[in-house]
Nucleic acid binder design. Structure first.
Length: 287
DNA sequence: CACTTGACCTGTCCGC
DNA sequence: TGCGGACAGGTCAAGT
C-alpha cells in the first residue's frame, strides 16, 4: 500500500488503539510473512505494547521486552485492528467493515482483552520480524535510509546535495531511492514531479535549480496534505480501522490518465519510468 | 562504480 | 465466458 503518509496514518491509528495492550498469542498463517517467528515469538508473547514508531515506510512497534516488532507492508500489506466489541458489519461503532481473518490474512496478534491485530498481505511481499533494541543500529535496512522529508532538518541544501550524488540517473528513480530520501513512493513521486513541472525522466544533473527548489517544496506539501487526508485510497490501502483514506481524490496526475491536467487541461498520459507506471501532463512536464 | 531491470507473489482487469 | 498477458502503492539481487 503504503508510502510515508499511509504508514504514518497507520502509525497514529495504531498508537491510540494498541499501546498498553498485552500480547497473549500469535498465529502465523504464512511462515514467510513473519521471519524467524518460531525462535523469536517468545519475545512477543506476554509483552506489552510500549509505542508505535515509523521510519520511512517501516513501522516499529516497541515492546516492553526490549525487543521491537518491525513491520514492512511492501505493496499490499495491511494492519487492521479489531476491538473486542463487535456491532456487526456496517455499524458506525464497528471498527472494521469486513470479516477477518480472510484469505489474505498472514498473521494474527491476539491481545489479552480479546482484541486482535491482523496482518493481511495479498502478495506476500511484506514481512514482520523481531529485532532487539541493541540490534536496531546495526539493522541494514534502517542504516541505509536517507533523511525523513518532513523533519525540519531536511533543508533544501540537504535535498539538493543528496540528489546530486546521482547526476546521471533520472529524477523519478532518485526520488524512489530510499537511500536518498526516505518514504517517497510511486504516488508521491508522480504528484510532486507534476507539481514542480519536471519530467520524471529528466536527468538530475540537467534540472534547473529553481525547479529543484519547487520539487523540494512540492514533496513536503504533498506528503503533509496526504497525511491530513488520511493517506491514499487506492487498491489495498486501509488504515488501522480497515478504512480507506481520501488522498487519491486530491491526486492531480496519479492514475488520472486520459483525464485533464488540472493546470492546463491537456490529457494526462501514462508512461513507464524507472520500471514503474508513471503519470504526467505532456504539456507541463517536458524533457 | 553508477544505473537499470527482473524477481518475488497473488489478484484483477483488459483485449481477443 | 474463457484465456493470456500486463500490471499493481516496494525492495533487493542480478544484469549492463
Amino acid at each position: 500500500m503504503p508510502e510515508l503518509p499511509e504508514v504514518e496514518t497507520l502509525r497514529s491509528g495504531l498508537s491510540s488503539r494498541i499501546i498498553g495492550k498485552k500480547i497473549k498469542d500469535l498465529i502465523v498463517l504464512n511462515d514467510n510473512s513473519f521471519l524467524n517467528y518460531k525462535k523469536d515469538s517468545k519475545h512477543l508473547i506476554g509483552s506489552f505494547i510500549n509505542g508505535v514508531d515509523r521510519r520511512a515506510k517501516l513501522l516499529i512497534i516497541k515492546l516492553s521486552t526490549n525487543y521491537n516488532l518491525f513491520v514492512h507492508l511492501k505493496m499490499t500489506g495491511q494492519l487492521v485492528f479489531v476491538g473486542k466489541k463487535r456491532f456487526g458489519a456496517g455499524h458506525p461503532n464497528d471498527s472494521f467493515v469486513g470479516r477477518l481473518p480472510d484469505k489474505s490474512t498472514r498473521v494474527e496478534i491476539i491481545f489479552d482483552d480479546g482484541s486482535k491485530l491482523y496482518f493481511n498481505d495479498q502478495r506476500k511481499f511484506g514481512w514482520m520480524r523481531i529485532i532487539a533494541d541493541e540490534d536496531i543500529k546495526s539493522f541494514t535496512f534502517l542504516n541505509k535510509l536517507g533523511p525523513e522529508p518532513l523533519e525540519k532538518e531536511f533543508t533544501f541544501d540537504i535535498f539538493k546535495s543528496r540528489i546530486f550524488k546521482h547526476p546521471n540517473a533520472n529524477i523519478k528513480a532518485v526520488l524512489l531511492n530510499q537511500e536518498v530520501i526516505a518514504g517517497i513512493g510511486n504516488i508521491y513521486a508522480d504528484e510532486s514531479l507534476w507539481g514542480a513541472k519536471i519530467h520524471p525522466s529528466s536527468k538530475v544533473g540537467n534540472i534547473a535549480i529553481a525547479k529543484l527548489k519547487n520539487l523540494y517544496k512540492e514533496i513536503i506539501y504533498i506528503l503533509n496534505l496526504s497525511i491530513q487526508k488520511g493517506g491514499s485510497s487506492n487498491r489495498n490501502y486501509v488504515n488501522a480501522d480497515g478504512k480507506k483514506g481520501s488522498f487519491t481524490e486530491f491526486a492531480r496526475v496519479f492514475r488520472r490518465e486520459k483525464m485533464e491536467c488540472p493546470r492546463c487541461s491537456t490529457i494526462i498520459i501514462k508512461i513507464r519510468v524507472a520500471g514503474r507506471g508513471t503519470h504526467i501532463c505532456p504539456k507541463c512536464q517536458k524533457l
